Simulated assay, not measured.
Amino acid sequence: MTKHILVPVDGSPQSTAALSFVAEEWPEATVTLLHVINPADAGGNPSAGIPSGAEEWYESEKSRSASLLADAASIVEPNVRMRTEVGRPTRTILDVVDSGEFDHVVMGSHGRSGVSRILLGSVTEAVVRGSPVPVTIVR
């Protein structure tokens, strides 16, 4: 029986679908929502190299994360926890799963294939390959 589910969220329709799936399939489970702030995303910000610019970017991302998690939590209430981490998404998700407190991961997938998957990579695929617990992919 699934008791504690990790659901990485990024605000996409796919992560919302994953949340809805969890709410329907495991209404009694504890759900931890995880949003990963990726420092590589600051690369598009010309002031990211300046400490004050990086701090401003990070504070903005923390605020965005809190908003995303609050919206996501409304889908899977009442047994929900929220968590924000900083790092590369795949590695961070796997590190959180490796903590041992989760018995299932549910993720949305963008469903990319072919060249776009090769060029863009697949966080979901990497989590499936590296996770010590079952992973359900929702499209």
Rank of each mutant, 00 (worst) to 15 (best):
T2F: 12
K3T: 15
L6W: 00
V7F: 02
D10V: 04
G11H: 07
P13N: 12
Q14R: 13
A17I: 05
S20R: 15
F21K: 05
A23L: 01
A23K: 09
W26Q: 12
W26N: 10
P27H: 04
P27Q: 08
V36K: 03
N38T: 05
P39L: 03
D41I: 01
A42V: 07
G43P: 02
N45H: 10
P46G: 06
G49Y: 05
G53R: 06
E55H: 09
E55I: 02
Y58M: 15
A66Q: 14
A73Y: 04
I75W: 02
V76E: 02
E77G: 13
P78E: 10
P78S: 08
G87I: 08
R88F: 10
P89T: 13
P89N: 09
P89Q: 10
R91I: 03
I93A: 06
D95V: 02
V96Q: 08
V97Y: 06
E101H: 09
E101V: 11
F102N: 11
F102D: 08
V105H: 07
V105Q: 04
S109C: 12
R112A: 05
R117L: 13
R117N: 07
I118S: 14
G121K: 06
G121F: 02
S122G: 12
R129N: 12
R129P: 09
V133M: 07
V135E: 01
I137H: 10
